[in-house]
């Protein structure tokens, strides 16, 4: 049994910060702070990512009328080596910090860990961030190199999202979560990680359905993190091949949607911030406004390590699932 039920975990508030590129597609006008430049008025991309994270935290605190010291804990995830954004960005605050890494599925892991601390009225802040150019430099090639992109690559989202969890009743409830298992089917193409992650998404979603006796029709939306258009079609094919007769119309991919209408973004968005921005910018408001009732949120992470790839290792991947529901 990999699915755990939560009795009273609620989303107190949520907020985002991103750059001009994220403001063009699906999230146009839905972001709390938008920086005109991907440097975010900082000296380098790493500092820019830290600024995005700090801005999203400030935004969510302001929205919910809280001060930093009202928080019990911050759970934070990012893509940088040694969790640079988390630990450097939060080094001057005086509350506990848990840094987590689960690649692009960090937002789900953060919410899972956070929900276990948000008990007895305590408030826990969960944040994740990523930055296109900082990730590009670390995982692929130097920014100055100006490499030609391949058709199947995804674009790391620049931005950060923060969610405050609490045990007191609020409109959005986190009802259950399903922990992912590391999957590795010997995928080796670093340019096409959607394919590798689709297997992890398939495993987690089917396990969740089996554990809870539910299926696609029990959710308004089942959203995967950042498979990209190619990965999403692999996932849909997996469901069809394995005898799922449900309509897959409500299975959508956040990475495919975030940069809608952007030809230079190729397969879509990725990164810790991609699924978090879409969750905070689009789906949580939909639940809050009563437009939808339930959401199965399944961010996927390619646990890709550049050194392992140089040593000709394959790319493992993981996906965690969380059920968001309108509180009754």
């Amino acid at each position: 049994m990999r699915t755990y039920k939560l009795d009273s975990t609620y989303v107190l508030n949520y907020a985002t910060a991103a750059t001009i590129n994220e403001d063009k597609g699906e999230l146009r006008g839905k972001l709390d702070t938008v920086f005109d430049d991907i440097y975010c008025d900082e000296k380098n991309y790493e500092l820019a990512e830290q600024k995005l994270m700090k801005t999203s935290i400030e935004n969510v605190l302001k929205k919910s009328n809280l001060r930093l010291n009202d928080l019990e804990l911050i759970v934070s995830g990012d893509l940088m080596n040694q969790l640079m954004t988390t630990y450097y960005g939060l080094r001057h605050i005086s509350i506990p910090v848990i840094g987590i890494y689960s690649a692009c599925s960090s937002s789900a892991l953060g919410l899972i860990i956070g929900s276990n601390y948000a008990v007895n009225g305590k408030k826990v802040l969960v944040t994740t961030s990523s930055h296109y150019a900082a990730a590009e430099r670390q995982f692929r090639y130097p920014n100055e190199y100006g490499l030609q992109k391949k058709e199947v690559v995804t674009t790391t989202t620049s931005g950060a999202g923060s969610i405050i969890l609490t045990s007191k009743k609020h409109p959005i409830q986190i009802e259950a979560y399903t922990l992912g298992v590391i999957q590795d089917f010997n995928y080796k193409d670093v340019n096409d990680m959607g394919g590798a992650m689709s297997i992890a998404a398939y495993d987690t979603i089917t396990t969740h359905f089996k554990d809870t006796n539910r299926s696609f029709k029990d959710y308004d939306y089942v959203v995967t993190g950042d498979l990209g258009s190619l990965g999403l079609s692999v996932l849909k094919a997996l469901f069809k091949e394995n005898g799922y007769t449900d309509s897959l119309d409500n299975l959508v991919d956040l990475g495919t949607m975030i940069y809608k209408g952007c030809p230079e973004c190729y397969m879509g968005g990725s990164g810790c911030a991609c699924s978090m921005l879409m969750l905070c910018g689009k789906y949580l408001p939909m639940i809050e406004n009563g437009k939808i009732n339930s959401l199965l949120y399944v961010p996927t992470g390619a646990l890709h390590n550049p050194i392992a790839v140089f040593q000709k290792q394959s790319i493992p991947s993981i996906a965690h699932a969380i059920v968001f529901r309108k509180a009754v």
Binding site: Y39, A133, N143, E144
Partner: peptide, 9 residues
Amino acid sequence: VALIFKPKS
């Protein structure tokens, strides 16, 4: 060039 310019993306 590295002295004068900053990468844009």
